[in-house]
């Protein structure tokens, strides 16, 4: 390590050492780590490869990269194991053959609503530092965050979807235990951040007793929605009607977003 790097790291007013700092910043990877990481990513990519052109992934769902958990959150949960996610991804291969889109006769429910685990979706919103229970009467604005919480009566595979005029997106999947918990990714609370240009939409939590590939869910639900008449109770109810036709338990909530 050169003196110029050491000077820069220890003194506020030392000149930037340029490329030498980059050399210091980097540490060689342990043997095998790069290959193992790329292999893990390739496996996920292969298992989740889309078979149809689906709506482009939405850009506003993420794990919070910087914000710490809100201080006034009441929910504390067990971690979601990355190893569990990897194993869950591996299970995606057992979902069976995929029906051709456009032919409702080939849409075969896997499981039934009668046996699908009962799940409920709860949401809370965070505006600024204030976290409060979600109210469907409340209009969300850009910058607001929506957090999610599930209740399940038995072990279940849960699937969080967002349905808007942009299409159906599977935001999150997990295998959960009975009880209630936040939806998390590797331990971090999952949130939806409202962005400028967002419009009204519906969040839905579906359950199944087996692992399902996200593309299968989106495709089948999209097809089922086409065959489901409008519901008096609104789009949220229609969505769950369609999901139940596919053998999923469903709970959904529509959000209003300020234009």
């Amino acid at each position: 390590m050169s003196d110029s790097v050491l000077d820069y790291l220890l003194q506020d007013d030392a000149p930037h050492p340029g490329a030498e700092l980059q050399a210091f910043a980097s540490i060689p990877l342990p043997v095998g780590l790069a290959q193992a990481t790329l292999a893990a990513v390739a496996q996920e990519r292969t298992l989740a490869a889309p078979t149809l052109a689906l709506p482009a992934p939405r850009t506003s769902v993420s794990t919070p990269p910087t914000a710490s958990e809100p201080a006034n959150r009441r929910w504390r949960l067990p971690a979601v194991l990355v190893a569990g996610l990897a194993a869950a991804a591996a299970l995606l291969v057992v979902v069976g053959s995929q029906p051709e889109i456009g032919d409702p006769e080939l849409l075969v429910p896997r499981g039934s609503e009668g046996t699908a685990p009962i799940v409920h979706l709860e949401m809370s919103t965070q505006r600024g530092q204030a976290l409060e229970r979600f109210s469907p009467d409340k209009t969300l604005s850009p910058g607001d965050r929506v957090f999610f919480r599930y209740k399940a009566d038995q072990p279940a595979f849960i699937h969080l979807l967002y349905i808007s005029e942009g299409g159906i997106e599977v935001l999150h999947q997990d295998r959960v235990r009975p009880g209630q918990d936040d939806l998390r990714i590797a331990g971090d609370p999952l949130f939806w951040k409202v962005e400028p240009g967002d419009s009204n939409g519906t969040f839905a939590l579906l359950s199944s007793d087996q692992e399902l590939a996200p593309d299968d869910i989106a495709r089948e639900l999209s097809q089922a929605l086409q065959d489901t008449p409008s519901a008096d109770q609104g789009e949220s109810a229609r969505l769950c009607q369609a999901a139940r036709r596919l053998g999923r338990y469903c709970d959904s909530t529509t959000i209003k977003v300020a234009p």
Binding site: P30, T63, S68, A79, V82, A83
Partner: peptide, 27 residues
């Protein structure tokens, strides 16, 4: 940011979550 959040989360836990690889530094 993703890395920081991941590290923070790990710091909140006491258990290991990902299988390991061989560690051999050579610098």
């Amino acid at each position: 940011g993703v890395a920081l959040n991941t590290a923070r989360d790990a710091g909140r836990k006491s258990q290991r979550r990902v299988s390991t690889v061989m560690l051999e530094h050579d610098r």
